[in-house]
Design a protein around this nucleic acid. Structure first.
Lengths: 333, 333
DNA sequence: TTGTAAGCGTTATCAT
DNA sequence: ATGATAACGCTTACAA
């Protein structure tokens, strides 16, 4: 079943069928309807390969992420996929894990599939060592590279980022205004976004004349239990803190559990702020104050920018979206 | 840059290049190495469209799900994607939402992309009305249809399901053994899996000589707050219950929050069991007893079955995986 | 408005 | 072991 079958049955040439297929205006209504009807009768669907061969594109975007089961990335993928589809694009998903090597391998695999663009979701996909991102810069000569919440400078590379630094700056400042002095900062990774968040925290302390102490900046695997246990250990070791600012809601949930275990009152004895305003934030008692990183807006903006690139519009290399502080019950303000 | 460039530079025919590309044994080592070297020099990558045109396959599997941001499905997608990739297959992701119409549309879209198989993740994609699944049965003549935690009878349709019925049966039975008499059952959807879970609950009650009461079987949107509020309302309306068995951890978390708000002791005054053993289960105090539905095993089995189908092995139409009851602190056993 | 025919880059089938 | 060439099914000039 191909375009020839349709053309034969409709009594027109394959060129005409192709025109109908591609919505060319140079077809009479009568012919168009005839062809459409035949297509329907035959249950004809055009062959994408043949089409791709001619067009050099398949209306498919590659999406890379480290792990699609992470709630933040899962939402990102969901929004990206939905958004792309409304523009008539499919998505090939690629979860790369955390090794640079496999990431490059999958990146090339996507390129070999002739995807029209590659979206990198999550700032963990950008390496801190500039050399390690060279493959992206090289590839960007051939196809647009879109970064969701990550930044990399380059000719055909477009970044949409959340203003994480400003967000944690505000969060920490408000903790300080509400009387907190010993704010523990919990983070998981040193990504573009991770560094910005940490800087915001540090700037806020410095801006208020408070010391930035190494001991109050702690790395922790991104899961509830690890965070809870870390805080129990820190507490046990004699470190005193009256607030926890976390780079992810999972860590903040761990802080709530630590407080519950040790009998500390939230927010009177311990204030807690999470990040991402995920469904985790509503799981705890009291519910988490959290920074909404606007993942949906981030994804939609990324897609709009990409469509702009495809249409040759003049689009910004970098778009910054402001985060929102969602105030619930783990803070005194 | 194509196969002609390589053939010219290597001084051989395109047929020979193609043979090298496809690992044909009918090439002398000398020629093979020569061609390989030229390919490397030129940075040549074969064109997937042309290849697909000839082969009629692109080593790509379509994955459909209702919503990739649901934690259960997000994990499923992650496992499926990873597993397929280890077998050399790509995945095209398609989130369809809950309307049958868009589902059919996307299904056909995947078919038109000539994917080698379609995996339907989550039992919500199978309709209760058999007529509405006809499109799957029709399509299964052309390509294998794989169901993850859903069942549909058909020639080329393969199901891998979790024994949900047995799981809730055991959970409810143990609640009863531990002294509970008024077990509230919370569910979200009437899917294949949803119905099985409910039946397990009902059977357990009946098996213990307890009445199955309509009032104790309640539908609820799959989010923490809705579940909490529903329970508050039921409590307020005078319904008395001493246990909650939920079809999803999110609902069970809502039950914990209800208990916290009303001051009911867990598990002494209220026992709670969730489903899926997701990260939600560790967010609450006390932590949730939950049924582990073995999503990873489900996905891996699905992929193994699919590879079996591709290789013409004799594979089972339906594979059932047993769930595990993970006992934590919201039950008296 | 419609048709003809030349690509597009592979794979596969013949010969040799 | 290698080469020539015909598919594969579409798009797109160019002609009519």
């Amino acid at each position: 079943m191909n375009i020839y079958d349709v053309s034969r049955k409709a009594g027109v040439s394959i060129a005409t069928v192709s025109r109908v297929l591609n919505g060319s205006p140079n077809v009479s209504d009568r012919t168009r309807n005839l062809v459409l009807e035949v297509m329907n009768d035959l249950g004809y669907t055009p062959n994408v390969f043949a089409r791709g061969l001619g067009l050099g594109t398949i209306y498919t975007i590659g999406i890379m992420c480290s792990d699609s089961s992470d709630p933040y990335l899962a939402h990102a993928i969901s929004y990206l996929e939905r958004g792309l589809r409304t523009h008539g694009y499919d998505s090939i998903l690629c979860c790369t894990g955390n090794s640079l090597e496999t990431r490059q391998k999958y990146f090339n695999l996507l390129r070999s599939k002739k995807v029209d663009a590659i979206i990198l979701a999550g700032s963990k996909l950008i390496e801190m060592n500039p050399m390690d991102n060279q493959y992206l810069i090289d590839a960007s000569r051939e196809l647009p590279i879109m970064l969701v919440n990550g930044y990399l400078k380059g000719e055909n590379i477009y970044s949409t980022v959340c203003d994480d630094r400003h967000a944690t700056h505000e969060a920490a400042s408000r903790l300080i205004s509400s009387g907190c002095r010993d704010i523990l900062y919990l983070y998981t990774s040193y990504s573009y976004s991770g560094v910005n968040k940490m800087n915001g925290y540090q700037d806020a302390l410095a801006g208020c004349g408070l010391p930035v102490r190494e001991k109050y900046i702690r790395q922790c695997p991104k899961d509830v239990t690890s965070a809870r246990d870390l805080l129990l250990r820190l507490d046990h070791s004699g470190l005193s803190f009256d607030a926890v600012l976390a780079s992810d809601d999972a860590l903040a949930v761990g802080a709530v559990k630590y407080a519950n275990m040790t009998g500390r009152e939230i927010p009177d004895s311990l204030s807690i702020i999470g990040y991402n305003n995920s469904s985790y934030a509503l799981c705890t008692d009291p519910e988490l104050t959290s920074i909404d990183s606007k993942i949906e807006t981030l994804c939609n903006t990324t897609i709009n920018t990409l469509m702009g690139v495809f249409h040759g519009s003049n689009v910004p290399t970098r778009t910054t979206i402001a985060a929102d502080l969602i105030i619930r019950a783990t803070t005194k303000f």
